[in-house]
């Protein structure tokens, strides 16, 4: 074996040592960055949700997070979400009365999943506002669900009454073609942004169909909470 060929050969130990040192160093950097940013990220997430809740329930003064469990009970929310549980936010007005409930719904949009937060007012059994938690819809087209006044007016009192058995909505929330809305549970789509409009309708329907039947027996209990 000539000298250059011998020099090109590295011992396996040297390679493993190098990879081990680099992996350890990189591990330390990642963990340090994670620990350093943990609190600001959690604070940012809380702020995003709080802003969304205050937007969909403008009369809210205080927000309490809860979870509705599959066995029909509700309890204050912790960090972890048990399997099958639905997180929601009870919003209380300045006098301490229950102003409304905010919960998330999600459905596939044009580019990705559209996640929205909707505000539910038990008094009228209707949805009174929506806010977008996350979406990657086309700017200028799908994003019009945030700015189109005519579309947003659908959520002044969108009917989400429960059926007699309290097992689901009396009428599924539906998005209809622009200008054809005739019933209070219908959403008038934005012309040119139908896919995203329909995603909003499906997200509200899915979220309300899951949460409201579980919530209905506990509304008085939530209203009595200090």
């Amino acid at each position: 074996m000539n000298a250059p060929a011998a020099a090109a050969l590295e011992s396996p130990w040297a390679m493993i040592r190098t990879l081990g040192v680099v992996a350890t160093l990189c591990g330390v950097i990642i963990v340090a960055a994670y620990q350093w940013t943990l609190a600001p990220i959690a604070a940012n997430r809380r702020i995003v949700i709080e802003r969304a809740v205050f937007k969909v329930i403008p009369s809210a003064h205080r927000i309490e997070p809860f979870i509705a469990l599959p066995n029909g009970t509700i309890q204050p929310a912790g960090e972890a979400l048990p399997q099958g549980a639905i997180r929601f936010y009870a919003a209380y007005g300045s006098g301490g009365a229950l102003a409304g409930i905010a919960a998330e719904g999600a459905a596939k949009g044009y580019a990705d999943t559209v996640r929205i937060l909707f505000g539910y007012v038990p008094g009228c059994a209707c949805i009174t506002g929506i806010a977008v938690v996350s979406m990657r819809e086309t700017p200028g087209i799908g994003t019009r669900i945030l700015t189109d006044r005519e579309f947003l007016s659908n959520f002044q009192a969108l009917d989400v009454r429960l059926n007699r058995e309290l097992s689901g909505l009396a009428n599924a929330v539906q998005t209809v073609k622009h200008g054809t809305k005739t019933r209070p549970w219908e959403i008038d789509a934005i012309a040119g942004a139908t896919v995203t409009s329909r995603a909003v309708g499906r997200a509200i329907d899915a979220g309300a169909q899951r949460l409201l039947p579980r919530l209905a027996p506990h509304l008085e209990e939530l209203a009595r909470r200090p």
Binding site: A33, W36, T37, N44, V48
Partner: peptide
């Protein structure tokens, strides 16, 4: 992580 800490939007 840094971008999440700066702005979730």
């Amino acid at each position: 992580y840094l971008i999440q800490a700066i702005s979730l939007a």
